[in-house]
Design a protein around this nucleic acid. Structure first.
Lengths: 119, 119
DNA sequence: ATTATATATAGATATGTATCTATATTCACG
DNA sequence: CGTGAATATAGATACATATCTATATATAAT
């Protein structure tokens, strides 16, 4: 797999304000003005964030009169969860195997995640 | 829930090189020098990335002689998946409900994600 | 038509960060 | 002890981006 799309989603999500927007939209569609009431930043800043979310394929916009309605894409939810599973599963899809990895040949392959208790 | 820790994980993951490091480590522990062979950047740059991953609670380091062995934390895997589920589930944990949200009172609550087909 | 409302765009600024080179530290080994 | 190898730290630089103000656009209402 290539993680291009997944990285773009992560980048878009890796901002507290945009994460809150996603959280808000997970409850249902909202227009820009309604979203804005939940934040302290300016309207152009929201417009910027919504564009980032759209470009990452996280949100779609539907214009109705003067309102922009934003909705979470089901494809985003599916693809993001799938990307996460693929990333964190220690199976044959491991990048090493597709990379002629010397470490794999040296036996590092396999689920070797460790439960650790230090701070 | 507060997403502080989750955002920190997202930030650390939202870099193609660090994502590849996570992918490599999902196959098993590796020392810095082994990880470095998979990349074009310099050794100090790797050191920086590993610090970011550690600060985000994604990776732990165990020093053995002059080698640093890096391992994915199981807690990271659990917490990240849990955070994702919590974010994208349209249930009572929705931020609106804990925020005295006017939109919720106006009936926007509920799973309203939309399958959309435009580009 | 004019005015008000919702949103977008342009341009500036400040902060964050990914990267580099140079150097320091730590450790094994002779 | 001195040397080489693995890693970390310091400082610099370049690029990305989150934010703002000012302004433009689009639509509804009067």
């Amino acid at each position: 797999m290539d993680y291009q799309n997944y990285v773009q989603m992560l980048k878009a999500m890796a901002d507290p304000n945009r994460l809150k927007i996603i959280d808000l939209l997970s409850c249902g569609s909202l227009c820009a003005c309604d979203i804005l009431t939940h934040f302290d930043f300016s309207q152009p800043t929201l417009s910027h964030h919504m564009k980032v979310l759209q470009n990452a394929g996280i949100v779609i916009a539907r214009k109705e009169g003067k309102w922009q309605h934003y909705t979470l894409r089901t494809e985003f939810i599916d693809q993001f969860k799938q990307g996460t599973d693929q990333l964190l599963a220690a199976d044959e899809s491991c990048i090493c195997h597709s990379d002629n990895c010397a470490d794999c040949q040296a036996g590092h392959s396999g689920k070797v995640v460790v439960s650790n208790e230090e701070s």
